Amino acid sequence: MTIALQTFNLVKRFGGLVATNDVSITVEKGARQALIGPNGAGKTTLINQLTGVLAPTSGRIELEGRDITSLSVHERARAGMVRTFQINQLFKELTPVESLAAAISERDGLGARFWRALGHRGELMDEVAALLEQCNLVDAMHRETRVLPYGKQRLLEIALALAARPRVLLLDEPVAGVPDGERREILNTVAALPDDVTIVLIEHDMDLVFSFASRISVLVSGGLLTEGSCADIARDPSVKAVYLGEELVGSDHV
């Protein structure tokens, strides 16, 4: 087993509140792992610790065996850990082509000079085209992001994350707020993400979780309740009691 991401006894306290409590999670390389739990379970706090937004009160985080606990957000991104957000964070006045060209240029150290690269760096535009195709954005490539349907904006956020060439990708509720008619495109894109990218999915949508993940970690009250396969989690009475309720009873997930 090759480990991509691992936490060791992560604790985060805010005064007297313990938001994450002794959380140890192991994610294998190439895994499709989901992180679920009720509101207030500590999911966002855990993800913020993984990505460097919050420093843990105690504990350790390793990325492919390297201790990254003290690294900044940008240093972790350069090391290969990339995150999408529950609420997308995009350049509203740019088109998908321009946004992806900017992201790739920043990754390659060109920074603001990406405008000069447009149309002049064949390999950059080839990569942009591949990402547009992969994330179903070809039909929207020249439209300003602000006028795109919300589902397309979420797809653009996934494309931008892939442009960073992540080794571990954290998908934070990729279908949150997306109308039902646009969700299938996102589900298909997520399902087709490259096998060599390790993915941790944070999600409330159980259809997405069970169609995508091969392993599920369940957080409750800041602690890790249980982990296991989709079948194990669907049948676990403690999970049903604290989170899933009757949702899975009699469903295809059991």
Rank of each mutant, 00 (worst) to 15 (best):
G16D: 15
R83Q: 15
G30A: 11
Q33G: 01
H74F: 11
R66E: 12
T51S: 15
K12T: 10
I68Y: 00
S24W: 10
A79C: 11
L94I: 02
T51A: 10
G40Y: 13
E75W: 02
V97Y: 08
A55Y: 04
E93W: 03
N21A: 14
F91A: 10
G30R: 05
P38I: 06
V23W: 03
L17G: 06
E98A: 14
R60G: 02
N21P: 11
I25E: 12
T51D: 01
E75P: 04
T45K: 09
I61D: 00
N48T: 06
N48S: 10
A31E: 14
V53A: 10
V23Y: 03
T44M: 06
E98F: 08
R60F: 02
A34Q: 02
N88D: 07
K12F: 10
A77I: 13
R32H: 08
D22K: 08
E28K: 13
N21C: 13
S72G: 12
Q33K: 14
N21R: 15
G42E: 05
P56M: 02
S58R: 15
I61E: 01
Q33F: 14
A19S: 14
R66M: 09
I36F: 01
A77V: 14
T44Q: 05
E93F: 04
L63A: 03
N88G: 07
T57A: 04
A31N: 05
L17P: 05
A55H: 12
A34K: 02
S58C: 06
Q33A: 11
D22R: 08
V97W: 10
N88R: 01
G37F: 05
S70Q: 11
G15I: 11
G40K: 13
N39W: 11
N39I: 09
G52C: 09
V23P: 01
I87F: 13
V73E: 13
A34L: 01
G15D: 14
T44I: 05
E62P: 00
S58P: 07
G65H: 07
T57G: 06
G80K: 02
R60K: 15
R78L: 12
I47M: 12
T95Y: 05
I68W: 00
G40E: 13
L94R: 03
L100G: 00
D22L: 09
P96Q: 06
G30H: 07
V97D: 05
F91G: 00
G16L: 10
F85Q: 06
R83N: 06
V82K: 02
G80C: 06
D22E: 15
R66L: 07
E98C: 09
G37Y: 05
T95E: 05
S72M: 07
N39V: 10
N39Y: 12
P56E: 02
V97E: 14
Q49F: 00
I61K: 00
I47H: 04
P38Y: 09
A79I: 06
L17H: 12
